[in-house]
Design a protein around this nucleic acid. Structure first.
Lengths: 247, 247
DNA sequence: TCAAAAGTGTTTGGTTTACACCCATGA
DNA sequence: TCATGGGTGTAAACCAAACACTTTTGA
């Protein structure tokens, strides 16, 4: 493990991933708990000499979740010289006797933030060499994170909310088939407020990114809601061209 | 000049600035012409060990224009491993006998793109050590740029257009006092389409970011338009909080 | 048969778009 | 005096927000 410290990875450059999932009507984020300090942190990674940032982020995402071909987007660069000391000094590896890692982690990193939207059910959380746990945490239960990771998370959320108005969201966050109330819950959770059922449905349907299917949910009590799936062709078009135009 | 090659600057990390100005009803961009290859390029820079990316970008902007306290914002990271070879190999410094610079420029750079909006009249274009000219170019007259700088410029424009719908724009791009038709021309140029005079005025005024002044323009033929200035207090509030909310 | 959730349509109000007339100025 | 650009108001169209009734289901 220690050999990547010297060869093959670019100095000074890292990335952090804010991986969002949706479960039990809650927005969740995948976090790692570090081995020594027990601090919680966003999954991060470094960039190989042959990779673009996007490829490095996709690799990191795959290493932590097993997932590929995921919506993954850079949203901000975090570059304060003291950013590694923002919450408290990194007691973790620096004082852990980790040996050759120490030099690597002691350098200054400029980190590119990425966010990803993944299917909670399909992800298999896997921790890395420096952490002992990898878990989904609901937004509300997230407290202090390592370094400036709280800021990174906040910025990711802010970006996600902004994108909600001009990009389709939901594919990768929801299972293949889902109901309109489920999709609405997702939007409500992301926006942090209630939406009108009927107006929501009208608006979403006007985007033509859904295919309506048959009935469902013997499991659920009360009237069975219809199932929908994303119309990937239209969905991807909307991803490229946006849902509405400015001004 | 050559000493920064080794000490004080971070390896692998650079920044490029897309500096927009507005003059003669045209959107212009500040470009450098390189000494040897004669290629045109965006002004770029590197990051000192003690600087954030934002500070490095502000320094670069000041070095090329003499301006400080300018609207300056990161918009994307360009990280393709081969990005320096996208238009054609950098014949420039690599084959120029520049000596110690050669190693520095031959490394792979991950570049953070920034864009700035500046007052054309106040800027004093100054070229750097590697270039022989620094000039404003209207968008239409910009042809082939060095490396991936065409992509960087395109992405900057795209970002600027998006921001137009939720951020106030114009302060720093226009002189202190300006007329409504001038502001409209700016918007039309940025958006690339004509807008209705009356609707435009109503919309802008509803944002409460302008102060109306007295008459003007003995210089101009025909009816003299009113002058406006930005109401900085409201302008800055709008910058922070946005002009409209999504969904 | 009732409570809770889901399906659907209509009314209303605000915003955006389209459009026309008058005024000031220099040629 | 006329062509050009600038100032202003109003009607129509469109979209978003508010809202109510019916259906289904399990208890």
């Amino acid at each position: 493990m220690a050999d990547f410290m010297k060869e093959g990875f670019l100095n000074h450059i890292s990335l952090d991933c804010v991986i969002f999932g949706f479960h039990n009507n809650q927005l969740k984020v995948l976090l790692l708990q570090m081995k020594y300090s027990k601090e919680w942190a966003l999954p991060g990674g470094f960039v190989k000499e042959t990779e673009s940032m996007e490829e490095a982020a996709a690799r990191t995402l795959e290493e932590r979740t097993g997932l590929r071909e995921i919506f993954l987007q850079q949203f901000h660069v975090f570059s304060e010289p003291k950013r590694s000391k923002i919450n408290h000094a990194v007691k973790d590896l620096k004082n852990s006797g980790a040996g050759p890692d120490e030099k690597w982690f002691n350098q200054r990193f400029i980190s590119v933030g990425f966010y990803a939207l993944v299917d909670f059910e399909k992800a298999t959380p896997m921790h890395d060499f420096f952490s002992e746990k990898c878990e989904w945490k609901a937004l509300e239960e997230i407290d202090r994170l390592m370094m400036d990771h709280n800021q990174i998370l906040d910025k990711a959320l802010e970006t996600l909310r902004l994108q909600l108005s001009y990009l389709p969201i939901g594919y990768n966050l929801l299972p293949e088939k889902f109901t309109m109330p489920e999709l609405q819950k997702l939007y409500e959770t992301l926006l942090g407020r209630k939406l009108d059922r009927r107006n929501f449905q009208r608006k979403i349907l006007s985007w033509k990114i859904l295919n309506k299917l048959e009935e469902q949910k013997k499991g659920g009590a009360y009237k069975a809601p219809f199932l929908y799936e994303f119309n990937l062709e239209n969905y991807n078009t909307a991803l490229k061209e946006g849902l509405s135009d400015p001004m």
